[in-house]
Design a protein around this nucleic acid. Sequence first.
DNA 1: CTGTTAGCGCTTTCAG
DNA 2: CTGAAAGCGCTAACAG
Lengths: 336, 336
Amino acid sequence: MIPVSLKDLAKELNLSVSTVSKALNDCYDISAETKRKAFALAAKMNYHPNPYATGLRKQNSKTIAVIIPEIANHFFSLAINGIESVAKDRGYHFLIYLTHEDYQKEIEITKHFQNGRVDGLLLSLSSETSNVAHIEELLSRGVKIVSFDRVSEKILTSRVNTNDFQSSYLATEHLIERGCRNIAFLSNSKNLSTNNNRMKGYIQALARHQLPVEDHLVFECTNDNDHNYQLISDILQRKNRPDGIFASVEKIAMTTYHVCHDLGIDIPKDIKILSFSNLEIASFLNPSLTTITQPAFEIGQEAASILFNLLEAKKNNSQILNKTLNSKLIIRNSTN
Amino acid sequence: MIPVSLKDLAKELNLSVSTVSKALNDCYDISAETKRKAFALAAKMNYHPNPYATGLRKQNSKTIAVIIPEIANHFFSLAINGIESVAKDRGYHFLIYLTHEDYQKEIEITKHFQNGRVDGLLLSLSSETSNVAHIEELLSRGVKIVSFDRVSEKILTSRVNTNDFQSSYLATEHLIERGCRNIAFLSNSKNLSTNNNRMKGYIQALARHQLPVEDHLVFECTNDNDHNYQLISDILQRKNRPDGIFASVEKIAMTTYHVCHDLGIDIPKDIKILSFSNLEIASFLNPSLTTITQPAFEIGQEAASILFNLLEAKKNNSQILNKTLNSKLIIRNSTN
DNA sequence: CTGTTAGCGCTTTCAG
DNA sequence: CTGAAAGCGCTAACAG
C-alpha cells in the first residue's frame, strides 16, 4: 500500500494540511483558486481520504453491520440487495456477519460492535436466540439497531417485516378452498416471530372455517434435515394422512416434497403443499407448490433507510417504527 | 455511543494509558499483577479496543472487500459462506460490494479501496468488464487481490476457480452418450473466463466424438431475460431443433426450461438439458436437468486463505497461485 | 483567506 | 516494570 495522504498534497502545494483539508471539503473560507488547485492535485495524485482517520475524528465509521442467520437463502440475499441499494446511495458500507442460526455465534459477533466498528446494525435473529441480553447491551451502549424479519418483542428497536399473519391466513384459506380439511403445519422454530405469526394465521384460518385446530397437526421441525425427513415421513404414513401441508419455510417444503416423492405420494392430487419461499424458480419448477413470496428486497431497503435516518437524525429521535410489507401469494396450479 | 477507551481504564487503574495498552496486549515487560488487574477491569467495563484507531496506528484494517457481480445467486452466496468461515477464524471482517454485472459500477466500487479501507480484495469480475485498468491501478498501489471464479488473464493475481473446461467436457460427453447429436451451447458472456472455458469443453467433447462443431449451435445470451427467452424460443422452433442444450449458467437453463414448457417440448424425452448450477434443489425439483455443481464454498475458503496468507506474509512474497477445484456432475435421471 | 494547535484512540519507541 | 511523548491521517476551533 503506497497511500497518498493530505500531507503529501500539502507539501506539493506548499500549503498547510488543514488548508488542503478545508479546500477539499469545500469550506466557505478557502479561495476558489486554492480549491481548484487542491482538487486538481488530488485528482492527479489519486488522493482518497483515509476513511478510518476521518472516522476516528468524526466519531463515526459510515459503515454498518448486517447480521443474518444465513446467506445461502434467497430471502436474505435479496434483502442484502435491498440494503446495498440504499447503502450505496447514502454513502454507507456494510459488513456481513452470519450466525448460522447459532446463539453463541450471535453473541460472539455482537462483541465486535462494542467500540466504533459500526455506526449501526441491521439485525435478523438466529432461530436459537431467545435471550436477548447481548442485544440490549449494545442498545444501552447507544448502538443504533433496526431489526428485520426475525424480530423480537423484547428488543426495543424499529422493526421491518412481512405480513406473516395475514398472508398465512389467506394462504391457508386458499388450501381450504381447494378442498383440504386436514392441514398440517410444519413449524420452524418456536423462537421465531415469523414462524409464530405464520402459525397464528394458519390457526385463525382453520377456526374461521370451522375446522378443528388440532395439536397433533402442528409439528416442530429443526435445523436438522434428517430429523425433519423422518418426522415428515412419519406424518405422511399415518392412517389419517394430512391432505395439505403448510411448511413455514422453503427448506421444509423441499423436504416434504422429497418425502412425497420417496413415498410415491402425488402432489397436488394426494396432498397440497404450501410454503413461504422467495426463490422464484421453486414455484416454477414445481407448479404444484403454492408459495408465499416476501418482498425481501423492499424489506432490506426499508430497514436500511430507517437505520440511516436514525443515524443521521439531528435530535436523538428514537421513535420506534414498525413497518409491515405485504407478501404475495403465488398460485401456479390452481386446477384440482 | 458511550465508548470505553484505554484512557478510561487507565484512570480507573491509576496507570498510564501506555501501560494499560501493553498489559492488555500481554507485553513481556508488564508485571503479572498489573496485567491481571487490567484484564479484570477491561472485562468488567466491557472494554473493546477501537479497531480503527488500532488500524490507523498499525496501518491495516483487518478487513477485506468482497466484490461480486450479484448475491442472489447460489454460487456467490455459498462462496461467501466459505469466505466467512475462514475470515472469522483469522480475525478478519469483510465488506460486500455488488457490481450488478455493470462495468461502471465496478469502477466506482474500486475507488473505495485507494486508501486503507481494506487490506485486500476478493474479486469476481462483472460480465461487462473487459478493460481491467481499474484493477491494475489498485494492484500498483499495493492492494492485495485474489481473483475467484470470474478471473482475467490480464490481471496478475492468484486465482481460484473450477475445472470449467474439464467438467464441461465430461458433461457434454454425457449428453452425447445419452444420444444427443445436435447439442446447442447457450453462452453467457464472451467476457467471462468461466463461460469461455465451458464452451471450450463443449467444443472439444463434440470434436472428440466426431460431431460437427457448428457455429450456428452456439448462441450468446445476455443479462436480459426477455431477450434470452425469445432467442431460445427461436432456436427450439427451428426445423432441426437441437436434441440437447448446454446452458452455461443456471438462469439460462431455467429460461430454457420455461420455453420448453410453453412450447410443449418434453424434457428429457424431446430434449436434454445440462447446466451449471449450484442450487441443490434445482436438480431435485426437476430431475430431468443434469447439473454441474461447483465447489462454491471451498472456492470461497481457498480464495480467502490465499489472500490472508498474502496479507500476513513476512516477505513480499508475491507468488501467483492458480488453484482449480473440481466440480461434480449430478445426474439424477439417466434413464432414457 | 491561511496556518497553528489539539486531539480522535491507539501503539511504540525511548527514558526512567 | 512503568510512563512520557510522538504519531497514524484527518478535522475543527481558533488565531492571525
